[in-house]
Design a binder for these strands. Structure first.
Lengths: 186, 186
DNA sequence: TTGTACATGTAATTCGTTACATGATTAT
DNA sequence: ATAATCATGTAACGAATTACATGTACAA
């Protein structure tokens, strides 16, 4: 009994508009990449499976003279499947994999003088990411939130962007606290 | 060029003391499970690979009359490999997979009346987890942090537990804010 | 004309889970 | 006795990445 998350992620993307495998791959480099992504090789394979399952249909669009874009469109079955998946609550996972946290668990085996640089590197990366996310937020949602509301099709985007920001803020806070704790403890 | 995280997680666990595959499997249900875990089938397979690579050695311990426990011990090579991995900083991943957040991205396709129950379910689960983590913290680290310091071999444990708590607090905060935002917006 | 982006696929391999399979030890 | 836990493994499958492979369109 597998979870088939990618399957439903693709159905979700196609729910808004017909897309090619290339388009779907591109979507997975945008906002949603904070929470799910896949390489084109996996996407093209998954699209074939979804065709088999009759959750999507294919048609061809010509770009330029002869380049065939294979466009995919949700079937009624596909819409139903997506709705079912979206409405069905799931157990939260016991494990949320994080290599840095795993290394920190083994901190006693890291030479004293390498510890703070490791934390500092992680902090730099996380702050960089946080600042990018905040820029995006400013660009898209600042002002609007209060004045006019959001359009219905922007709510999901808004919520996941605030989620990503919240996650990175929490990461940065913990890193800063940890750095202080390690410094003070020496 | 794979990352072999499990490989290094096992080396890390064996750094403290010799263990069997069964013991390692059990460790992955404790604190560290918040950030990494694996099933016994994968662990036994990985242990064979590590033997091949001469990063660990095997010896037999008898439990009771004839039950053979296969114990594993780091080699010098294994210690070096672990130290290298621990000291080497890595790029943070672009994607931290989260099925709930993915569903939220598609919130516009969830029937209005199902949205808040979904968030409430997630909130209940996250608060439950947070409360378990805080209990563990109380049990193990409360009081100590300030009075006496931590033993060297407790620092990693302390930091990852505070990390897990921070992560879940952030999740809960975002869920509460989102619920308010969705309510207010109706 | 040349490089970048568009566009689609397969193959090989690794990582991870579930299912299958077996047996010993210990506590009730 | 018998159930729970200890203990180790393989097989099958699914999920995911990397590498291989090819060709078109468009802008500088």
């Amino acid at each position: 009994m597998a979870k088939r998350v990618l399957k439903h992620a693709i159905l979700g993307l196609l729910r808004k508009q017909d897309m090619s495998g290339y388009d779907i791959t591109a979507e997975f480099t945008k906002e949603i990449s904070q929470f799910w992504s896949a390489k084109h090789s996996q996407i093209y394979t998954e699209l074939k499976k979804l065709l088999d399952e009759k959750l999507i249909e294919q048609y061809i669009e010509i770009s330029g003279v002869k380049l065939e874009r294979k466009m995919y469109k949700l079937t009624e079955e596909g819409k139903k499947e997506l709705a079912q998946w979206l409405m069905h609550p799931e157990q939260i996972p016991e494990t949320e994999k994080d290599t840095f946290a795993l290394k920190v668990y083994f901190i006693q085996y890291i030479p004293e003088e390498k510890i703070l640089p490791l934390f500092q590197d992680q902090l730099d990366q996380r702050e960089q990411k946080l600042s990018e996310l905040k820029s995006r937020y400013q660009l898209i949602f600042a002002q609007r939130e209060e004045k006019m509301g959001l359009a219905a099709d922007e709510l999901g985007h808004y919520l996941v962007l605030t989620k990503a920001i919240s996650r990175e803020e929490s990461y940065v806070d913990w890193l800063k606290k940890s750095i202080r704790f390690i410094r003070q403890k020496r």
